[in-house]
Simulated scan of single mutants.
Amino acid sequence: MRRWGEHPSPTGQEALVSPIDRSRSAVTPTTVKAPTAAPKNSLVGGVVDAIKGGIADVPRFIEMGKDVFQAAHVNELKRIFGGDAKPDRMNDGKFVGAKGQTFPPGTPLKEIPGVTPLDNPNPSKTILYVNGIMTPTSGQLSEMQAIAETADAKVVGIHNATQGLVADLAQCVADKLDKGHNPAVDALADTLYSELKAGREVHLMGYSQGGLITARALDDVAKRLRIEDGMSQAQVEKTLGKLSVETFGAASTRYVDGPKYVHYVNNADPVPTLTGLGGSVDPTAFLKDAGKGAVVHRFTDGNANPISNHMLDTLYMKHRVDFDQARAGRF
């Protein structure tokens, strides 16, 4: 037994215990990574960075609010300003077929596998469809399926690409003024001209801006028939008579004479009532032209939400009837 004050033997058991090095920290150091800055290659990224920087030193609960803002609103900002629109622009003016496949303009319609009804893979009719604003290719594909089920037809799309709300609305203004280049207008006009020159009939649908694109393309075809083919106005109208045209909530106020038209207008939808053919009560009706012999079916459906009142698949398709039935006024 060791007495108080005696030093332990260096060869004893206690010698196996290493002395503590008090120059070392008792806590294992960790590497702290600097936060990764948000991408700054877009307007939206710059806006978000500015917001983050401005609240970096505020209390913790506001710091948490910053993250909530980013998660909830960045996607909406991108949709408005077109921050992530590049992939969709690549399909502008292209044909859209089954499973979202895209085909370049000029592809013969018969070579494009269209969207078909789920219970009828071989329908006898084909419809060419142009979508409205703020609709990516996947959204158009869903609308094409709704049309296929309602009309019992094969549906081939011509894609009107979205570049964000601001750019899409600006393009609508240009379409109304017949100014600027719109790939969807060119693709539709070229397709219709080729089909008509081959003596084939075409059934087409245009929704929202797609109706405006349809009107502009039809006007281009009529001009081409007069200028390139030397047709008279009567001959142009007779040739365009091979076209069956349906519009839904369209933003156009004028359509060329010749095609057989059916226009659907929801009185609760601000798009056609304010920018298109107008509702049931329209003091500016004398300024508008639905096309010679057109049938305009006006109805009232919806609620206080103007967006839902404008939807193609969930609202307008409920009111659509067979084309010949509609032309006879039986809704």
Score class of each variant (00 low, 15 high):
207 Y>G: 00
195 E>P: 04
212 L>I: 09
208 S>V: 06
215 A>C: 10
197 K>G: 02
203 H>V: 03
211 G>T: 01
193 Y>Q: 11
198 A>H: 04
205 M>C: 09
202 V>S: 09
218 L>Y: 05
210 G>Y: 04
220 D>C: 05
225 L>E: 05
218 L>K: 02
205 M>A: 14
216 R>V: 14
212 L>P: 01
222 A>R: 01
192 L>A: 07
218 L>C: 11
220 D>R: 13
216 R>C: 03
207 Y>F: 15
196 L>D: 02
199 G>C: 08
224 R>W: 08
203 H>L: 06
196 L>Y: 09
206 G>E: 01
225 L>K: 02
199 G>P: 02
209 Q>N: 11
211 G>I: 00
222 A>F: 01
196 L>E: 04
200 R>L: 11
219 D>I: 06
215 A>I: 10
202 V>W: 03
207 Y>N: 06
227 I>A: 14
211 G>F: 01
202 V>D: 05
205 M>E: 09
218 L>Q: 04
224 R>H: 12
213 I>C: 01
195 E>C: 09
196 L>R: 02
206 G>M: 08
202 V>F: 06
192 L>E: 00
225 L>Q: 09
216 R>L: 08
207 Y>Q: 05
198 A>C: 06
193 Y>W: 12
226 R>E: 15
224 R>G: 08
209 Q>P: 00
210 G>Q: 07
204 L>E: 09
224 R>I: 03
215 A>T: 11
226 R>F: 05
197 K>D: 11
192 L>C: 06
214 T>S: 14
213 I>V: 15
226 R>D: 11
214 T>G: 10
198 A>Q: 11
222 A>N: 03
225 L>Y: 07
223 K>N: 13
199 G>W: 09
218 L>N: 07
201 E>R: 11
196 L>I: 12
194 S>L: 10
209 Q>H: 12
200 R>M: 07
213 I>G: 00
218 L>H: 04
198 A>I: 09
201 E>V: 06
223 K>T: 12
222 A>Q: 01
205 M>Q: 10
205 M>R: 11
217 A>I: 04
210 G>A: 11
211 G>R: 00
222 A>K: 01
209 Q>L: 06
222 A>L: 04
211 G>N: 06
215 A>L: 10
205 M>N: 05
192 L>P: 01
224 R>Y: 07
192 L>H: 05
204 L>H: 03
214 T>A: 14
214 T>L: 13
212 L>W: 09
218 L>D: 07
204 L>P: 00
208 S>I: 06
195 E>D: 10
215 A>Y: 07
207 Y>H: 15
204 L>I: 14
208 S>H: 03
207 Y>I: 01
195 E>A: 12
196 L>H: 05
208 S>F: 05
220 D>S: 12
